[in-house]
Write a protein that binds this DNA or RNA. Structure first.
Lengths: 232, 232
DNA sequence: TGTACATCAGTGAACGCGCGTTCACTGATGTAC
DNA sequence: TGTACATCAGTGAACGCGCGTTCACTGATGTAC
C-alpha cells in the first residue's frame, strides 16, 4: 500500500503546495507577463524561501511547462465539456455563462471566448508570441489534437449540404496529417480550420487591446464570425 | 544654417549609429524574443561599451518604443505603397513579390502576409502578446489609423452591391470612432474589420508555429480567407 | 592657416539589484520494530 | 505505546551572472576668432 498509488498525506501536501505555487505563478504572469516569472518572487509570496521551490519543481522551465500544459488541458476540458453538455445550461452559477448556444459550433465558439476572457494571459501562453528558442512540452501536441478532434466532431455533425469540394478543400483533404484518424469530410476540415483562425483573429486582437478606443463591441463581431463559419 | 535643419556630419553619424543599434536590436529580438533585449549585449555586438548607448537612447524603453514605432511605420508604408502602386509589379526583384494581385484588397492581403513573413518577430512586436504593464508609444495610434484608412479606402472602392446593412453593420456604423473621418459605408466598415481579424488569425497562428506538422499549406488558407472577405 | 575653446562620443569603474541554482544543514514527519 | 532510524520539507548562505543606469574622465571633432 505504500507503493505509489493511494495518496499518502505527504503526497497530498506536495500536490497542495505545487498548486499554490502555480496559483501565484499565474498571478505573476497576469501582472508582469510570462517572461517576468521568478521562482524567488513566488517563494516570497507564499512565505517560503526561494530555494524551497526546488523541492516541487526541478527548475523554472519545468514550472512554465507545467503552466502551459495546464492551460492546454483547461481549454481541452472546456471544449469537451461543452461538446458533451449540449444545451444543458445554468447549473449553479446564474451568470451569463448559463444562457449560451448549445453544444454545436456556436456553443464551442462561446465557450472559447469565455475561456479566453477569463484569463487573457493564459490564452496568450497558448496562442501568443512564441519565444524563439523555447519548445513547448511534447504532450501539448496531444492535447491540441484532442481540442481539434472536438472541433472536427462538431463540424462533421453540423455538415452543410455537401456540394463539390473547393480547391482548398481538396488540398486540405490531401494533406490531413492533423486529422488522419478522423472521418471528417473535406468541408469539415475547412470549417474547423476556419473556425479556429477566424475566432482566434478576433480574440487575440481584442485581448491585446487593439480594439480599445474603436468604439464597437467586439462580442458582436465575434459572434458574427462564428455565424459566418457555420454558414460556410 | 547651424539651426537644426540641414544635417551636420555629426547628426549624420548619430543617425547612423542609432540605425546600427536598432539593427542589432532586431537581431537580438529575433533570436531570443523582445523581453531578452539588452543594451549591454547590443553594445558588445557593435563593439561599444554598454553605457555608450546612452548617448543615443535615453534608456531601454525608448529603444523598444522606437522599434515598435518603426514596425508600425514599416507596415503603414508597405500598405500605402501597395495601395498606390496598383498592379505595378515586378520592379527590380524577380521574386514572387512581383506577381501579386494588384492594389485592391487582394493586393493588401498579399502585402500584409509578405510583410509578416519577412520578419515574424517584428509582426509580433506589433500584434503579439502585450506586456501587461507596458503602454505603446502614443504616436502608434496615429500610424494604426493610417493603416486603417488605407484599408477602408480599399473596402470602399471595392464595394459590393449595396444591400440593407446587417445588424452588425448597423452597430458598427453607430460606433465608428475609429473611422469617424472616413466616408466608408457600413459594409466597408464590416469588411475592413473582418479583413483585419481573419488575416491576422491565419497569420499569427502560422507564425507562432501552430500549423507546424499539420501538413497543409497555410498560404492557401490565407488567400482563401482573403477571397472570402472580398465576397463578404 | 593656426590657435583656444566648447562640444560631444566613448570608456571603464562602480552601484544596486534580482535572477537561477547549489549546498550543507536543521527540524519535523513518518516508518519499523 | 515507545524508541531508533530514515525520509523529506524548508532555511540561509553563497556563487556567478547579467542587467539598467550613473558618473567622472579621456580624446577626438567641430567652431570661433
Amino acid at each position: 500500500m505504500s507503493e505509489p498509488d493511494a495518496k499518502t498525506p505527504r503526497e497530498r501536501y506536495r500536490a497542495q503546495v505545487r498548486e499554490e505555487v502555480k496559483k501565484h505563478a499565474w498571478e505573476q504572469i497576469g501582472t508582469a507577463g510570462a517572461s517576468a516569472l521568478s521562482l524567488n518572487a513566488i517563494g516570497k509570496q507564499i512565505g517560503m524561501s526561494g530555494p524551497a521551490l526546488y523541492r516541487y519543481f526541478a527548475n523554472r522551465d519545468e514550472l512554465i511547462s507545467e503552466l502551459i500544459r495546464d492551460a492546454y488541458r483547461s481549454l481541452a476540458d472546456t471544449f469537451r465539456a461543452r461538446a458533451e453538455a449540449g444545451g444543458a445550461a445554468g447549473e449553479e452559477a446564474g451568470r451569463e455563462a448559463g444562457r449560451d448556444a448549445g453544444a454545436g459550433l456556436a456553443g464551442l465558439a462561446h465557450a472559447l471566448r469565455e475561456w479566453a476572457l477569463a484569463d487573457p494571459q493564459r490564452y496568450f501562453l497558448v496562442y501568443g508570441t512564441p519565444v524563439p528558442g523555447y519548445r513547448a512540452p511534447e504532450d501539448t501536441t496531444m492535447i491540441a489534437a484532442e481540442i481539434m478532434a472536438v472541433l472536427l466532431d462538431a463540424c462533421t455533425a453540423e455538415a452543410p449540404p455537401a456540394g463539390p469540394p473547393s480547391p482548398l478543400e481538396t488540398h486540405l483533404d490531401a494533406h490531413r496529417d492533423w486529422a488522419a484518424h478522423h472521418p471528417a469530410p473535406p468541408s469539415a476540415l475547412h470549417r474547423a480550420l476556419t473556425f479556429w483562425t477566424r475566432l482566434h483573429g478576433v480574440l487575440s486582437l481584442e485581448l491585446a487591446g487593439h480594439f480599445a478606443g474603436m468604439g464597437f463591441d467586439p462580442a458582436l463581431l465575434y459572434t458574427a464570425e462564428a455565424e459566418a463559419v457555420r454558414n460556410l
